[in-house]
Design a protein around this nucleic acid. Structure first.
Ligand SMILES: [Mn+2]
Ligand SMILES: [Mn+2]
Ligand SMILES: [Zn+2]
Ligand SMILES: [Zn+2]
Lengths: 125, 125
DNA sequence: TGGCATATGATAACGATTATCATTATCCCA
DNA sequence: TGGGATAATGATAATCGTTATCATATGCCA
């Protein structure tokens, strides 16, 4: 773990989470002003490969990253209005997914459940 | 509906489904050799807007399209080995998703469930 | 037929990501 | 400790999917 990779992991764990590579780059530049965007992409790939970060790609096709390893799996509720990500998990859904896959002779290794809509803050309640 | 938009809709409904824009372009060129890629993108946007097609973006970030309107909602099992898309639906999951969202004060408008793994053909059974 | 809106194709532009390559930092052992 | 292998870095070019632009073509109705 080089000093930049440490810094990027620190951005992931201390920041608001669910950041894009560009956002991570901007945040990292506050500590390491000369860090390049290529280093950020390389570090993120490295951190994902060793299980310290996880990448996911929402409907706009831009990859986002969050810390992993110590954190449990979860799904995302994504607000179409403010863009915020709400983390949620429903164990029953997880179980049913496995059964659904099995019913089709499919061996699941990962899954992505994203629910798009309007968060409580944006719906003005 | 212009002749090209008809042709592209025909590609969507008659082909193997879950095609990317580039794949749709290639297929459409077999009937309309001079059709441009820009027309394909425009037609796909048009068809999605009027409910005749649906776009979804899997984990590689490349948009794929399928016919819509007459077809019911479904989720996808995506094979990491051969890239095939298996359509599946589990009504119980659909219900639980709505409850999960409600629990967070979230008003869902759409969702995407993709399960990645190995299909029965590729697992050699 | 003329006029105007829409559709089209070629191509430039764009944003995210990856590849390249020269330069630096880091590691490891004589 | 020194120096050479090795890995990491930053600048930048290249790539890929997608969108924007613009001139031309086509369709449609008065
Ligand atoms: Mn998350
Ligand atoms: Mn489908
Ligand atoms: Zn919101
Ligand atoms: Zn397969």
């Amino acid at each position: 773990m080089s000093v930049r990779r440490e810094a990027i992991l620190e951005v992931l764990t201390s920041g608001p989470g669910h950041l894009s590579a560009q956002e991570i780059h901007r945040a990292a530049q506050e500590r390491l002003p000369r860090i390049g965007i290529a280093t950020v992409y390389r570090a993120l790939k490295f951190l994902c490969a060793c299980g310290k970060a996880a990448e996911f790609i929402p409907a706009d096709g831009v990859a986002r990253y969050e810390p992993a390893g110590s954190r449990a799996h979860h799904d995302h509720l994504i607000c179409n209005s403010c863009g915020s990500f709400i983390e949620a998990v429903e164990p029953e859904i997880e179980k049913l997914q496995i059964r659904l896959a099995a019913r089709h002779g499919f061996k699941p290794s990962s899954h992505k459940l994203e629910i798009y809509g309007i968060c409580s803050r944006c719906s003005g309640k």
